[in-house]
């Protein structure tokens, strides 16, 4: 393609697939308000950037984000592709779900893996979660954004997740080196977003900023949004390791002395790489059961994430380096 005329603005092919929203139910107005705000943010992103992309992590927040994107541009398709950064250590069910959703919705899905990391044999067991996350997630994401020269990456992070996220803007600026400068963020007033970028810079966009974990589940229930079955309780083979229940999803997981996978009824509150996702003992096998279990829960969803435990300010540091 070098040297040739490259038209960046190919018109998206007209598709005529009717995708009527489900019949209106009596939704709580606060969910509708959140929905309206997120749709506004998604449309701003489409209108203001040259080449946006939606990061699709296959989790519940991504499922909601994708559902909102389908609504925002209905009856058309979202005018941006989906990007999944595949560490090759995701649960098998996640990958199957990802491919099925992209096919059903007729969306353009880009899957990117850090080939360098792969050939160096970086894995979560031998290299530790910090190094592994940096190479296979943070660096991989930066590679993918650079490779396709995306200038805006839409993600499903919420402000209620974690303290440094609570301070991040809806439109969060990244330097040409993908760095976040938390002390020098652009003020964000009303619904007016400063979307201007210098060459090489980019924006991370968080349409779910004002949603809580409970809002996400309520909305999934209300709108009947498909989610990966791993969120629902089922008998799965797990080992107890460092105080967490880790599912033995494939034969690559080295078992330590004395570790014997046991079949237990578990589910996951957050999904990621299976070696780093702690399961919780649960019998909640339906969405309403999950929601009521969540209401009674006394721990936060991030408790199951191994990577946040590395150091107290670990999320802020990872974000500064370009982690989503």
């Amino acid at each position: 393609m070098t040297g040739q005329i490259v038209s960046i603005m190919e018109p998206s092919p007209a598709r005529n697939a009717p995708n009527e929203a489900p019949a209106a139910r009596n939704a709580p107005s606060h969910l509708r308000r959140l929905e309206a705000e997120s749709i506004h943010i998604l449309r701003e992103t489409a209108a203001e950037f040259r080449k946006p992309v939606m990061l699709y992590s296959i989790g519940k927040d991504s499922s909601v984000l994708l559902h909102l994107a389908m609504k925002a541009f209905h009856p058309g398709k979202p005018p941006f592709p989906l990007l999944h950064v595949d560490t090759t250590w995701k649960f098998r069910e996640m990958i199957a779900f990802r491919d099925q959703r992209a096919r059903e919705l007729g969306l353009d899905l880009i899957v990117h893996t850090n080939r360098d990391g792969l050939s160096q044999g970086i894995d979560p067991f031998t290299h530790g979660s910090a190094r592994y996350t940096d190479v296979m997630k943070t660096q991989a994401l930066r590679q993918a954004l650079d490779l396709h020269s995306f200038d805006a990456a839409i993600g499903g992070a919420r402000r209620d997740e974690e303290k440094s996220r609570a301070k991040e803007r809806v439109f969060s600026h990244r330097s040409a080196a993908h760095r976040w400068d938390p002390k020098n963020q652009r003020p964000e007033l009303w619904s007016l977003y400063n979307t201007m970028l210098a060459p090489g810079e980019s924006m991370r966009v968080f349409p779910l900023s004002n949603w809580t974990e409970l809002d996400i589940w309520d909305y999934i229930l209300l709108e009947d949004i498909p989610i990966v079955p791993l969120y629902l309780a089922a008998c799965r083979p797990v080992v107890e390791r460092d105080g967490a229940l880790i599912m033995v999803d494939d034969e690559r997981m080295p078992l330590r002395a004395g570790e014997e996978p046991r079949w237990r009824s578990v589910r996951f509150r957050t999904l990621g790489c299976y070696p780093l996702s702690g399961a919780t003992i649960s019998t909640a096998a339906t969405l309403p059961e999950i929601v009521s279990e969540m209401m009674a829960s006394r721990t936060s969803e991030r408790q199951g994430r191994m990577i946040d435990r590395d150091s107290p300010a670990s999320m802020e540091r990872k974000k500064a380096e370009g982690y989503f």
Partner: peptide, 18 residues
């Protein structure tokens, strides 16, 4: 939430809480 804030015991940026 930010490291600098905890070190200095002051609030630097807007935090949204629910």
């Amino acid at each position: 939430g930010l490291q600098a804030e905890r070190e200095q015991g002051i609030t630097i940026d807007v935090a949204y809480r629910f």
